[in-house]
Design a protein around this nucleic acid. Sequence first.
DNA 1: CCGTTGTCGAACATCGGTGTTCGAGTTAGT
DNA 2: ACTAACTCGAACACCGATGTTCGACAACGG
Lengths: 203, 203
Amino acid sequence: MVNISWEVPAVTTLKRADARKNIESIMDAATACLARDPDVSVADIAKAAGVGRVTLYGHFESRATLVAQVVERAIQQADKALGGVDLDGDPRAALSRLLEASWRLTQQYGALIVAAEQSMPQEQFQAVHVGLVDRWKPLMERGRRDGSFRDDQPLAWQLTLLQSVLHAASGAVYRGEIKAAEAAALIDGTVQAALTPPGVTRG
Amino acid sequence: MVNISWEVPAVTTLKRADARKNIESIMDAATACLARDPDVSVADIAKAAGVGRVTLYGHFESRATLVAQVVERAIQQADKALGGVDLDGDPRAALSRLLEASWRLTQQYGALIVAAEQSMPQEQFQAVHVGLVDRWKPLMERGRRDGSFRDDQPLAWQLTLLQSVLHAASGAVYRGEIKAAEAAALIDGTVQAALTPPGVTRG
DNA sequence: CCGTTGTCGAACATCGGTGTTCGAGTTAGT
DNA sequence: ACTAACTCGAACACCGATGTTCGACAACGG
Protein backbone atom coordinates (compact mmCIF):
# COMPACT_ATOMS: atom_id res chain seq x y z
CA MET A 1 0.00 0.00 0.00
CA VAL A 2 2.96 2.26 -0.63
CA ASN A 3 2.64 5.53 -2.43
CA ILE A 4 5.45 5.66 -4.94
CA SER A 5 6.20 8.95 -6.59
CA TRP A 6 6.59 7.66 -10.20
CA GLU A 7 3.17 6.05 -10.07
CA VAL A 8 -0.02 7.21 -11.69
CA PRO A 9 -0.06 10.98 -12.37
CA ALA A 10 -2.61 11.41 -9.62
CA VAL A 11 -6.31 10.63 -10.19
CA THR A 12 -6.32 13.89 -12.12
CA THR A 13 -8.98 13.07 -14.74
CA LEU A 14 -8.82 16.74 -15.62
CA LYS A 15 -7.30 17.44 -18.99
CA ARG A 16 -5.49 20.60 -19.88
CA ALA A 17 -7.55 23.75 -20.33
CA ASP A 18 -7.27 23.97 -24.12
CA ALA A 19 -8.08 20.29 -24.42
CA ARG A 20 -11.26 20.72 -22.42
CA LYS A 21 -12.18 23.71 -24.53
CA ASN A 22 -11.67 21.70 -27.71
CA ILE A 23 -13.78 18.83 -26.41
CA GLU A 24 -16.54 21.32 -25.75
CA SER A 25 -16.22 22.79 -29.24
CA ILE A 26 -16.33 19.32 -30.78
CA MET A 27 -19.41 18.29 -28.83
CA ASP A 28 -21.19 21.52 -29.74
CA ALA A 29 -20.22 21.32 -33.40
CA ALA A 30 -21.14 17.65 -33.57
CA THR A 31 -24.55 18.40 -32.06
CA ALA A 32 -25.22 21.15 -34.57
CA CYS A 33 -23.92 19.15 -37.55
CA LEU A 34 -25.74 15.96 -36.64
CA ALA A 35 -28.93 17.90 -36.05
CA ARG A 36 -28.78 18.96 -39.69
CA ASP A 37 -27.37 15.81 -41.28
CA PRO A 38 -27.19 12.53 -39.37
CA ASP A 39 -24.64 11.23 -41.88
CA VAL A 40 -22.21 14.12 -41.59
CA SER A 41 -18.56 13.05 -41.75
CA VAL A 42 -16.07 13.26 -38.90
CA ALA A 43 -13.94 15.55 -41.03
CA ASP A 44 -16.80 18.02 -41.37
CA ILE A 45 -17.49 17.95 -37.66
CA ALA A 46 -13.83 18.64 -36.92
CA LYS A 47 -13.80 21.49 -39.40
CA ALA A 48 -16.95 22.97 -37.87
CA ALA A 49 -15.35 22.74 -34.46
CA GLY A 50 -12.26 24.56 -35.73
CA VAL A 51 -10.10 21.58 -34.86
CA GLY A 52 -7.98 19.01 -36.67
CA ARG A 53 -9.43 15.62 -37.40
CA VAL A 54 -6.60 13.96 -35.48
CA THR A 55 -7.37 16.06 -32.43
CA LEU A 56 -10.93 14.85 -32.53
CA TYR A 57 -9.81 11.24 -32.60
CA GLY A 58 -7.52 12.04 -29.69
CA HIS A 59 -10.59 12.80 -27.57
CA PHE A 60 -13.13 10.37 -29.00
CA GLU A 61 -12.37 6.75 -29.75
CA SER A 62 -14.54 6.59 -32.84
CA ARG A 63 -17.39 8.28 -34.63
CA ALA A 64 -19.79 5.98 -32.82
CA THR A 65 -18.60 6.98 -29.37
CA LEU A 66 -18.73 10.65 -30.31
CA VAL A 67 -22.30 10.27 -31.47
CA ALA A 68 -23.14 8.31 -28.34
CA GLN A 69 -21.76 11.01 -26.07
CA VAL A 70 -23.48 13.78 -27.99
CA VAL A 71 -26.75 11.89 -27.82
CA GLU A 72 -26.33 11.21 -24.14
CA ARG A 73 -25.78 14.88 -23.40
CA ALA A 74 -28.75 15.83 -25.54
CA ILE A 75 -30.93 13.31 -23.76
CA GLN A 76 -29.93 14.71 -20.40
CA GLN A 77 -30.68 18.27 -21.45
CA ALA A 78 -33.94 17.22 -23.05
CA ASP A 79 -34.93 15.31 -19.95
CA LYS A 80 -34.19 18.32 -17.82
CA ALA A 81 -36.14 20.66 -20.10
CA LEU A 82 -39.15 18.39 -20.28
CA GLY A 83 -38.96 17.63 -16.58
CA GLY A 84 -39.47 21.30 -15.88
CA VAL A 85 -42.79 21.37 -17.69
CA ASP A 86 -45.90 21.51 -15.52
CA LEU A 87 -48.11 18.61 -16.60
CA ASP A 88 -50.86 19.23 -14.08
CA GLY A 89 -54.13 21.04 -14.59
CA ASP A 90 -56.15 21.08 -17.79
CA PRO A 91 -54.71 18.38 -20.05
CA ARG A 92 -55.02 20.59 -23.14
CA ALA A 93 -53.13 23.42 -21.52
CA ALA A 94 -50.52 20.99 -20.25
CA LEU A 95 -50.21 19.55 -23.74
CA SER A 96 -49.58 23.05 -25.09
CA ARG A 97 -46.78 23.56 -22.61
CA LEU A 98 -45.24 20.19 -23.36
CA LEU A 99 -45.49 20.81 -27.09
CA GLU A 100 -43.74 24.15 -26.84
CA ALA A 101 -40.86 22.71 -24.86
CA SER A 102 -40.61 19.78 -27.24
CA TRP A 103 -40.60 22.09 -30.24
CA ARG A 104 -37.61 23.95 -28.84
CA LEU A 105 -35.79 20.65 -28.42
CA THR A 106 -36.74 19.52 -31.89
CA GLN A 107 -35.31 22.69 -33.39
CA GLN A 108 -32.16 22.32 -31.34
CA TYR A 109 -31.47 18.65 -31.96
CA GLY A 110 -33.33 17.95 -35.18
CA ALA A 111 -32.03 14.85 -36.88
CA LEU A 112 -29.81 13.88 -33.96
CA ILE A 113 -32.33 11.18 -33.15
CA VAL A 114 -31.81 9.72 -36.60
CA ALA A 115 -28.05 9.65 -36.13
CA ALA A 116 -28.57 7.86 -32.85
CA GLU A 117 -30.84 5.30 -34.47
CA GLN A 118 -28.26 4.56 -37.13
CA SER A 119 -25.20 4.18 -34.92
CA MET A 120 -26.47 2.82 -31.63
CA PRO A 121 -27.34 -0.78 -30.78
CA GLN A 122 -31.05 -1.35 -31.28
CA GLU A 123 -31.83 -2.09 -27.64
CA GLN A 124 -29.97 0.93 -26.31
CA PHE A 125 -31.81 3.22 -28.69
CA GLN A 126 -35.12 1.64 -27.80
CA ALA A 127 -34.45 2.45 -24.15
CA VAL A 128 -33.84 6.08 -24.99
CA HIS A 129 -36.93 6.28 -27.13
CA VAL A 130 -39.12 4.71 -24.48
CA GLY A 131 -37.71 7.15 -21.94
CA LEU A 132 -38.78 10.08 -24.08
CA VAL A 133 -42.22 8.71 -24.89
CA ASP A 134 -42.88 8.15 -21.20
CA ARG A 135 -42.89 11.89 -20.76
CA TRP A 136 -46.01 12.08 -22.92
CA LYS A 137 -47.86 8.93 -22.06
CA PRO A 138 -49.24 9.80 -18.60
CA LEU A 139 -50.58 13.14 -19.78
CA MET A 140 -52.18 11.59 -22.82
CA GLU A 141 -53.77 8.84 -20.78
CA ARG A 142 -55.15 11.31 -18.30
CA GLY A 143 -56.56 13.48 -21.08
CA ARG A 144 -58.18 10.47 -22.71
CA ARG A 145 -59.78 9.43 -19.43
CA ASP A 146 -61.30 12.82 -18.67
CA GLY A 147 -62.55 13.39 -22.20
CA SER A 148 -60.09 16.12 -23.15
CA PHE A 149 -58.59 13.97 -25.89
CA ARG A 150 -60.24 11.50 -28.20
CA ASP A 151 -59.77 7.86 -27.23
CA ASP A 152 -61.17 6.25 -30.36
CA GLN A 153 -57.63 5.88 -31.71
CA PRO A 154 -54.75 3.82 -30.31
CA LEU A 155 -52.55 5.76 -27.93
CA ALA A 156 -49.47 4.56 -29.80
CA TRP A 157 -50.77 6.19 -32.97
CA GLN A 158 -51.39 9.50 -31.23
CA LEU A 159 -47.89 9.48 -29.77
CA THR A 160 -46.40 8.72 -33.16
CA LEU A 161 -48.45 11.55 -34.58
CA LEU A 162 -47.05 14.02 -32.06
CA GLN A 163 -43.48 13.16 -33.01
CA SER A 164 -44.43 13.34 -36.65
CA VAL A 165 -45.93 16.82 -36.42
CA LEU A 166 -42.87 18.14 -34.62
CA HIS A 167 -40.63 16.61 -37.23
CA ALA A 168 -42.76 17.97 -40.04
CA ALA A 169 -42.57 21.45 -38.58
CA SER A 170 -38.80 21.18 -38.37
CA GLY A 171 -38.64 20.25 -42.03
CA ALA A 172 -41.06 22.96 -43.06
CA VAL A 173 -39.02 25.63 -41.30
CA TYR A 174 -35.84 24.27 -42.87
CA ARG A 175 -37.40 24.42 -46.32
CA GLY A 176 -38.70 27.92 -45.67
CA GLU A 177 -42.35 26.95 -45.98
CA ILE A 178 -43.16 28.51 -42.63
CA LYS A 179 -41.34 30.89 -40.33
CA ALA A 180 -39.81 29.56 -37.14
CA ALA A 181 -41.75 32.16 -35.14
CA GLU A 182 -45.14 30.84 -36.22
CA ALA A 183 -44.24 27.17 -35.99
CA ALA A 184 -45.11 26.76 -32.32
CA ALA A 185 -48.63 28.10 -32.84
CA LEU A 186 -49.16 25.89 -35.89
CA ILE A 187 -48.01 22.80 -34.04
CA ASP A 188 -50.28 23.50 -31.09
CA GLY A 189 -53.26 24.34 -33.27
CA THR A 190 -52.81 21.26 -35.37
CA VAL A 191 -52.23 18.78 -32.57
CA GLN A 192 -55.04 20.13 -30.42
CA ALA A 193 -57.42 19.80 -33.36
CA ALA A 194 -56.23 16.28 -34.14
CA LEU A 195 -56.77 15.18 -30.55
CA THR A 196 -60.18 16.78 -30.10
CA PRO A 197 -62.84 14.12 -29.48
CA PRO A 198 -65.51 13.74 -32.18
CA GLY A 199 -68.66 15.69 -31.37
CA VAL A 200 -66.86 18.33 -29.38
CA THR A 201 -66.56 21.92 -30.55
CA ARG A 202 -63.35 23.86 -30.11
CA GLY A 203 -62.08 27.17 -31.27
CA MET B 1 -27.97 6.58 -97.77
CA VAL B 2 -27.20 2.92 -98.49
CA ASN B 3 -28.54 0.15 -96.35
CA ILE B 4 -25.65 -2.15 -95.69
CA SER B 5 -26.40 -5.58 -94.29
CA TRP B 6 -23.64 -5.62 -91.64
CA GLU B 7 -24.90 -2.36 -90.19
CA VAL B 8 -27.14 -1.81 -87.22
CA PRO B 9 -29.00 -4.99 -86.21
CA ALA B 10 -32.25 -3.43 -87.34
CA VAL B 11 -34.03 -0.82 -85.21
CA THR B 12 -34.96 -3.76 -83.01
CA THR B 13 -34.84 -2.05 -79.62
CA LEU B 14 -36.42 -5.22 -78.26
CA LYS B 15 -34.12 -7.22 -76.08
CA ARG B 16 -34.23 -10.93 -75.73
CA ALA B 17 -37.07 -12.41 -73.67
CA ASP B 18 -34.94 -13.38 -70.66
CA ALA B 19 -33.29 -9.99 -70.67
CA ARG B 20 -36.63 -8.23 -70.55
CA LYS B 21 -37.75 -10.51 -67.75
CA ASN B 22 -34.61 -9.70 -65.78
CA ILE B 23 -35.08 -5.98 -66.29
CA GLU B 24 -38.57 -6.34 -64.90
CA SER B 25 -37.30 -8.29 -61.90
CA ILE B 26 -34.66 -5.68 -61.23
CA MET B 27 -37.09 -2.79 -61.41
CA ASP B 28 -39.52 -4.57 -59.10
CA ALA B 29 -36.83 -5.58 -56.63
CA ALA B 30 -35.32 -2.10 -56.69
CA THR B 31 -38.71 -0.56 -56.01
CA ALA B 32 -39.32 -2.84 -53.05
CA CYS B 33 -35.80 -2.44 -51.64
CA LEU B 34 -35.68 1.33 -52.05
CA ALA B 35 -39.12 1.63 -50.49
CA ARG B 36 -37.66 0.07 -47.34
CA ASP B 37 -34.16 1.56 -47.36
CA PRO B 38 -33.25 4.44 -49.68
CA ASP B 39 -29.55 3.66 -49.17
CA VAL B 40 -29.76 -0.01 -50.16
CA SER B 41 -26.74 -1.18 -52.16
CA VAL B 42 -26.80 -2.26 -55.79
CA ALA B 43 -25.55 -5.67 -54.70
CA ASP B 44 -28.56 -6.12 -52.44
CA ILE B 45 -30.95 -5.07 -55.17
CA ALA B 46 -29.39 -7.55 -57.58
CA LYS B 47 -29.62 -10.30 -54.99
CA ALA B 48 -33.26 -9.49 -54.31
CA ALA B 49 -33.94 -9.64 -58.04
CA GLY B 50 -32.27 -13.04 -58.27
CA VAL B 51 -29.72 -11.68 -60.69
CA GLY B 52 -25.97 -11.08 -60.80
CA ARG B 53 -24.64 -7.63 -60.08
CA VAL B 54 -22.95 -7.56 -63.49
CA THR B 55 -26.23 -8.34 -65.20
CA LEU B 56 -27.80 -5.37 -63.47
CA TYR B 57 -25.06 -3.07 -64.70
CA GLY B 58 -25.60 -4.52 -68.14
CA HIS B 59 -29.10 -3.07 -68.15
CA PHE B 60 -28.62 0.09 -66.11
CA GLU B 61 -25.74 2.48 -66.57
CA SER B 62 -25.40 3.31 -62.91
CA ARG B 63 -27.17 3.23 -59.59
CA ALA B 64 -28.41 6.74 -60.26
CA THR B 65 -30.06 5.84 -63.56
CA LEU B 66 -31.64 2.77 -62.00
CA VAL B 67 -33.10 4.88 -59.23
CA ALA B 68 -34.22 7.47 -61.75
CA GLN B 69 -36.04 4.88 -63.84
CA VAL B 70 -37.65 3.28 -60.81
CA VAL B 71 -38.77 6.68 -59.60
CA GLU B 72 -40.11 7.61 -63.00
CA ARG B 73 -42.19 4.45 -63.21
CA ALA B 74 -43.45 4.99 -59.68
CA ILE B 75 -44.40 8.56 -60.50
CA GLN B 76 -46.31 7.43 -63.54
CA GLN B 77 -48.23 4.80 -61.61
CA ALA B 78 -48.86 7.21 -58.77
CA ASP B 79 -50.08 9.84 -61.19
CA LYS B 80 -52.40 7.35 -62.79
CA ALA B 81 -53.74 6.16 -59.44
CA LEU B 82 -54.29 9.68 -58.13
CA GLY B 83 -55.69 10.82 -61.45
CA GLY B 84 -58.46 8.27 -61.10
CA VAL B 85 -59.65 9.75 -57.85
CA ASP B 86 -62.84 11.79 -57.99
CA LEU B 87 -62.05 15.17 -56.47
CA ASP B 88 -65.48 16.66 -57.00
CA GLY B 89 -68.34 16.95 -54.54
CA ASP B 90 -67.97 17.48 -50.81
CA PRO B 91 -64.33 18.44 -50.17
CA ARG B 92 -64.15 16.30 -47.05
CA ALA B 93 -65.36 13.21 -48.87
CA ALA B 94 -63.00 13.95 -51.73
CA LEU B 95 -60.17 14.31 -49.26
CA SER B 96 -61.02 10.90 -47.83
CA ARG B 97 -60.80 9.35 -51.26
CA LEU B 98 -57.54 11.07 -52.05
CA LEU B 99 -56.08 10.06 -48.71
CA GLU B 100 -56.97 6.43 -49.21
CA ALA B 101 -55.36 6.32 -52.64
CA SER B 102 -52.30 8.12 -51.33
CA TRP B 103 -52.02 5.72 -48.43
CA ARG B 104 -51.87 2.78 -50.80
CA LEU B 105 -49.09 4.51 -52.71
CA THR B 106 -47.23 5.36 -49.53
CA GLN B 107 -47.29 1.73 -48.46
CA GLN B 108 -46.15 0.63 -51.89
CA TYR B 109 -43.34 3.11 -52.40
CA GLY B 110 -42.42 4.16 -48.88
CA ALA B 111 -38.97 5.67 -48.73
CA LEU B 112 -38.57 5.72 -52.51
CA ILE B 113 -39.11 9.44 -52.37
CA VAL B 114 -36.13 9.75 -50.05
CA ALA B 115 -33.94 7.78 -52.44
CA ALA B 116 -35.04 10.10 -55.23
CA GLU B 117 -34.19 13.15 -53.19
CA GLN B 118 -30.72 11.86 -52.48
CA SER B 119 -29.73 10.84 -55.98
CA MET B 120 -31.54 13.21 -58.29
CA PRO B 121 -30.54 16.75 -59.21
CA GLN B 122 -32.32 19.22 -56.94
CA GLU B 123 -34.36 20.88 -59.64
CA GLN B 124 -35.54 17.63 -61.18
CA PHE B 125 -36.71 16.37 -57.82
CA GLN B 126 -38.42 19.66 -57.09
CA ALA B 127 -40.37 19.28 -60.31
CA VAL B 128 -41.56 15.84 -59.28
CA HIS B 129 -42.52 17.04 -55.84
CA VAL B 130 -44.43 20.01 -57.18
CA GLY B 131 -46.25 17.68 -59.55
CA LEU B 132 -47.42 15.53 -56.68
CA VAL B 133 -48.40 18.44 -54.46
CA ASP B 134 -50.45 19.92 -57.26
CA ARG B 135 -52.80 16.96 -56.93
CA TRP B 136 -53.73 18.17 -53.46
CA LYS B 137 -53.59 21.90 -53.79
CA PRO B 138 -56.78 22.62 -55.78
CA LEU B 139 -58.88 20.43 -53.52
CA MET B 140 -57.44 22.03 -50.42
CA GLU B 141 -58.00 25.51 -51.79
CA ARG B 142 -61.58 24.74 -52.68
CA GLY B 143 -62.24 23.25 -49.24
CA ARG B 144 -60.73 26.30 -47.57
CA ARG B 145 -62.88 28.64 -49.63
CA ASP B 146 -66.14 26.89 -48.88
CA GLY B 147 -65.43 26.49 -45.16
CA SER B 148 -64.88 22.74 -45.18
CA PHE B 149 -61.28 23.15 -44.07
CA ARG B 150 -59.73 25.65 -41.72
CA ASP B 151 -57.93 28.50 -43.44
CA ASP B 152 -56.27 30.02 -40.39
CA GLN B 153 -53.08 28.10 -41.18
CA PRO B 154 -50.80 28.39 -44.23
CA LEU B 155 -51.73 26.04 -47.02
CA ALA B 156 -48.11 24.94 -47.27
CA TRP B 157 -48.19 23.79 -43.68
CA GLN B 158 -51.34 21.78 -44.20
CA LEU B 159 -49.86 20.09 -47.26
CA THR B 160 -46.70 19.25 -45.35
CA LEU B 161 -48.86 17.88 -42.59
CA LEU B 162 -50.65 15.54 -44.98
CA GLN B 163 -47.38 14.06 -46.20
CA SER B 164 -46.20 13.80 -42.65
CA VAL B 165 -49.22 11.88 -41.43
CA LEU B 166 -48.95 9.42 -44.29
CA HIS B 167 -45.28 8.92 -43.58
CA ALA B 168 -45.94 8.52 -39.86
CA ALA B 169 -48.53 5.84 -40.56
CA SER B 170 -46.07 4.00 -42.76
CA GLY B 171 -43.51 4.02 -39.98
CA ALA B 172 -46.05 2.98 -37.36
CA VAL B 173 -47.14 0.01 -39.43
CA TYR B 174 -43.53 -0.96 -40.03
CA ARG B 175 -42.79 -0.82 -36.31
CA GLY B 176 -45.92 -2.82 -35.54
CA GLU B 177 -47.58 -0.05 -33.53
CA ILE B 178 -50.72 -0.25 -35.61
CA LYS B 179 -52.10 -2.80 -38.06
CA ALA B 180 -52.05 -1.99 -41.75
CA ALA B 181 -55.79 -2.65 -41.95
CA GLU B 182 -56.67 0.12 -39.51
CA ALA B 183 -54.15 2.63 -40.82
CA ALA B 184 -56.42 4.09 -43.49
CA ALA B 185 -59.14 4.90 -40.97
CA LEU B 186 -56.65 6.44 -38.55
CA ILE B 187 -55.16 8.62 -41.25
CA ASP B 188 -58.55 9.85 -42.38
CA GLY B 189 -59.81 10.46 -38.86
CA THR B 190 -56.67 12.32 -37.90
CA VAL B 191 -56.39 14.49 -40.98
CA GLN B 192 -60.08 15.37 -41.06
CA ALA B 193 -59.86 16.45 -37.43
CA ALA B 194 -56.72 18.48 -38.03
CA LEU B 195 -58.36 20.33 -40.93
CA THR B 196 -61.67 21.01 -39.23
CA PRO B 197 -62.20 24.76 -38.83
CA PRO B 198 -62.26 26.09 -35.26
CA GLY B 199 -65.80 26.41 -33.95
CA VAL B 200 -67.19 23.60 -36.06
CA THR B 201 -68.37 20.32 -34.61
CA ARG B 202 -67.67 17.03 -36.32
CA GLY B 203 -68.07 13.41 -35.44
C1' DC C 1 11.48 28.39 -18.07
C1' DC C 2 11.05 23.80 -19.11
C1' DG C 3 8.74 19.46 -19.60
C1' DT C 4 4.43 17.54 -20.24
C1' DT C 5 0.50 17.71 -22.77
C1' DG C 6 -1.92 18.81 -26.63
C1' DT C 7 -2.41 20.23 -31.68
C1' DC C 8 -2.20 19.30 -36.44
C1' DG C 9 -1.05 18.09 -41.35
C1' DA C 10 0.44 14.52 -44.17
C1' DA C 11 0.61 10.04 -45.16
C1' DC C 12 -0.97 5.41 -44.54
C1' DA C 13 -3.93 1.20 -44.05
C1' DT C 14 -8.63 -0.42 -44.24
C1' DC C 15 -13.34 -0.99 -45.44
C1' DG C 16 -17.49 -0.90 -48.15
C1' DG C 17 -19.74 0.56 -52.18
C1' DT C 18 -19.59 1.60 -57.24
C1' DG C 19 -18.51 0.57 -61.77
C1' DT C 20 -15.59 -2.29 -65.25
C1' DT C 21 -13.32 -6.15 -67.47
C1' DC C 22 -12.59 -10.86 -68.66
C1' DG C 23 -13.74 -15.30 -69.85
C1' DA C 24 -16.39 -19.20 -69.62
C1' DG C 25 -20.84 -20.96 -69.69
C1' DT C 26 -26.20 -20.65 -71.05
C1' DT C 27 -30.08 -19.64 -73.49
C1' DA C 28 -33.16 -17.50 -76.94
C1' DG C 29 -34.58 -17.30 -81.51
C1' DT C 30 -34.41 -18.42 -86.14
C1' DA D 1 -28.17 -26.49 -84.82
C1' DC D 2 -25.92 -22.57 -84.77
C1' DT D 3 -25.06 -17.87 -83.59
C1' DA D 4 -25.83 -13.78 -81.33
C1' DA D 5 -27.40 -12.31 -77.08
C1' DC D 6 -27.30 -12.86 -72.43
C1' DT D 7 -25.72 -14.36 -67.62
C1' DC D 8 -22.54 -14.39 -63.99
C1' DG D 9 -18.60 -14.97 -60.74
C1' DA D 10 -14.13 -13.39 -59.89
C1' DA D 11 -11.05 -10.00 -59.97
C1' DC D 12 -9.91 -5.31 -60.69
C1' DA D 13 -9.56 -0.10 -60.14
C1' DC D 14 -11.59 3.70 -57.85
C1' DC D 15 -13.66 6.59 -54.48
C1' DG D 16 -14.83 8.46 -50.01
C1' DA D 17 -14.99 7.77 -45.14
C1' DT D 18 -12.93 5.87 -40.94
C1' DG D 19 -9.21 5.29 -37.99
C1' DT D 20 -3.92 5.24 -37.15
C1' DT D 21 0.90 6.71 -37.10
C1' DC D 22 4.58 9.94 -37.28
C1' DG D 23 6.96 14.02 -36.45
C1' DA D 24 7.21 18.91 -35.96
C1' DC D 25 5.34 22.46 -33.45
C1' DA D 26 2.66 25.22 -29.85
C1' DA D 27 1.09 26.29 -25.30
C1' DC D 28 -0.38 25.11 -20.66
C1' DG D 29 1.00 25.04 -16.08
C1' DG D 30 3.98 24.31 -12.36
